[in-house]
Amino acid sequence: MRLVTYRDALHAALSQAMEEDPTVCVMGIGVDDHKAVFGSTKDLVKRFGPHRVFDTPIAEGGMTGVAIGAALGGLKPVHIHIRCDFLYLALDQLLNLAAKWRSMFGGQMSVPLVVRAVVGRSWGQGAQHSQSLQSFMMHVPGIKVAMPTTAYDAQGLLLSAIADPNPVFLLEHRLLYELTGEVPDYCRAIPFGKTVVRREGDDVTLVANSYMAVEALRAADVLSGYGIQAEVVDPVSLVPMDEATILNSVRKTGRLVVVDTSWVTCGVSAEIAALVAEKAFDSLKAPVKRLGMQRTVCPVSKPLERAFYPHAGTIVAEVLDLLGEQRLDVQVPETATSFKGPF
């Protein structure tokens, strides 16, 4: 095992996949420039050439269609977007074509396409550079969806996404890129459909994904200081979803707080709350709670931005509330992130 950043884990997986499979190609705005999508595609163009690693015009709709066609033509495109907000332009191609191709044509062909995109948060990303599009992709059948949290997830899921014959959407998070984690020396694919228990506990289940899993772990640390043991469960793979791990945890703790990187309405948290209501209702000792972005447009101004996003402090408060505890003196330090813009 070795310790690497999330960015380097993505990079290692991409390099290895390109080395082992000559049909893998990497496309997207800036994939071949000196910034290399926060370093995740660094030097790939030097190693594999401009026919396999190429910049595209700024045309997300068209280029997504091209990627779908390239996949049908025998390539395995990895199409990268530095912000997932730009994917609204590509939803027609992704949801009307890529997601439907196999079933609509009677299962005769598949679209082996990987779309990687990054969620922006912090440093005033504002209304149009801060969104988190997982539920759009989850809502429409036909695309697999995952949100890697650790370097291990990033590396393993990118490899299995590339090996998968179906369209896969991998949603990464800007604030995870600098974080380090252990990965195997030789990158190994990890299967989709696995929920990861990040920390065990008996009192409350925190289902939290992507960067919110990091905040949930910080919250769990604070809570343990008060004698409350939170179990942190990360549904890394959203489609397909490993429901059993979530349900088992809720059956054990009887309490559920879901924390998602996006809005709660019709989102991942709604889906998981519904799952628990349907399949583990009897084990609930308290109503399910949900945290996500506040239901408004993401503001730039710092105090508003702080109020807009869930973080360890709001998670702790929610758990205490759920347990009927009055702990008004709880102080949770703001996340120490090294991320300081400008992008």
Partner: peptide, 16 residues
């Protein structure tokens, strides 16, 4: 500066 007296009340920032 993200202040309430800004042209978009601090919500839009430089890009908006």
């Amino acid at each position: 500066f993200g202040r309430v007296t800004g042209c978009a009340k601090g919500r839009g920032g430089s890009m908006h």
